[in-house]
Amino acid sequence: MKKKLGVILSISLISSAMALPTLAADTTTSATVPAPAPSASAPAPVSSTKVSKPTVNGTIDTSKMAADSVYTVVSGDVFSRIAQKYGLSVDALAKLNPHIKNINWIYPGDKIIVKVAPPAAPAAPAAPATVAPKKLFHGFGEVSNYRIRGEKNDNLNITTASAVFDEDGKIVDLTWDVQEITYALFPGWLDPKASQADKDAFVAKIDDKWQTKREEGYDYDMTHKKSKGAADNLTKKEWFEQLNTYESFFKGKTVAEVEAWFKKYTDANGRPYKMAYPDKLTDSDKAAVAKFSAEEKAMLVDVTTGATMSLQDPHSHFISALKEAYAARKEIK
């Protein structure tokens, strides 16, 4: 009877030992080492042969980790020994494994990170996309017209437009100019008594006298600043300065867009509605601008602050010359 009771107790103790977690105090876990004698403070023996884990450790996703970065706990392992095995302090190993709630309670099958994964190499910068440069086209337009006063031809105006367009037809660069040929440029030639020598002398100086309006610069004196001592036009800007305003404003637009703008925002004389000078608006002008949005009116204020001269009148045919330039454009090689 005593022999049977001893066998039963042995089986019970073995079953209990198999269910218990690996403790930090269990440093070797060898079958040949006798179990330590219970102390006065030791807990009462477990009556059941089945012991549940007091804490369930969290799980981590190790699928993307290197195999040598993760250790799987086996029976008999203790946290400190795992740390020593991988050359880490206990604290360092604990910081790598925040999912281990209590380092004194680890279980077979737990995953412990034992190596910090090297930082991912920075991604190589993407090679810049190869963008083919846009093609550019240059065109030159020239339009001539006589300004007629009454029934008499007065002077001959030759309007030119030199423009660069991109492959979408948008203006990249634009230069307008006008050569105004007046009777004053022909002294001697109009005098029936002038000798051929006088006429030849005039021809010798023709390069000095024949300048475009842009070449004349401030000497053209459209503002009358030079002749009167103070600019007396609305913008107080000279001819070439006003033209610069238009050229800058039309960059980025197609010829069709420039033409549409001209038809919508200029009066019968080809001048933009003078929104910067409301007292100069005629009744007809006021009726036209009343239909414009606040944005359109603000745009016209900006434009007419810098330019009010006509874009298409007997003095010059800027719109027509631009259309000619676009029609004659050729790719810049």
Rank of each mutant, 00 (worst) to 15 (best):
G270P: 10
V258P: 02
T22L: 02
S12W: 08
K236A: 13
H315L: 07
A290F: 02
L13E: 00
V78W: 11
S89M: 03
S52H: 08
S227D: 14
S30H: 02
H99A: 10
D91A: 11
V114D: 11
L9R: 03
F137Y: 15
S310K: 05
N57W: 00
Y71W: 08
T28F: 05
M222K: 09
I103S: 14
T235Q: 07
M299C: 01
T28H: 08
K291T: 05
A161P: 03
N233P: 09
S30V: 01
V178M: 08
K297L: 08
K95F: 06
Q211E: 13
A298T: 14
F249S: 05
G150R: 05
D61S: 04
D173R: 00
F140D: 05
T266Y: 07
Y246I: 02
S16V: 13
Y273H: 07
T245C: 06
E247D: 06
K297Y: 04
T159D: 07
K193S: 13
V143L: 04
E257R: 06
E259F: 00
D283Q: 08
A44I: 14
K101S: 15
Q211C: 04
S284C: 00
A290E: 11
R149Q: 15
V203K: 06
S284A: 15
K333R: 00
I112Q: 13
K50C: 02
Y326I: 00
S75Y: 11
A117M: 13
K286L: 07
A201Y: 03
W239Q: 11
Y146N: 14
S47P: 03
L96T: 09
E216R: 12
K53D: 14
L9T: 06
D267I: 03
Q211L: 15
P192D: 10
G270S: 09
N244L: 10
A126S: 13
T49K: 01
D110R: 10
A307R: 01
S162L: 01
I60F: 02
A19W: 09
I103Y: 12
A67R: 08
A290D: 14
D232E: 15
G141Q: 01
K213Y: 04
K228F: 12
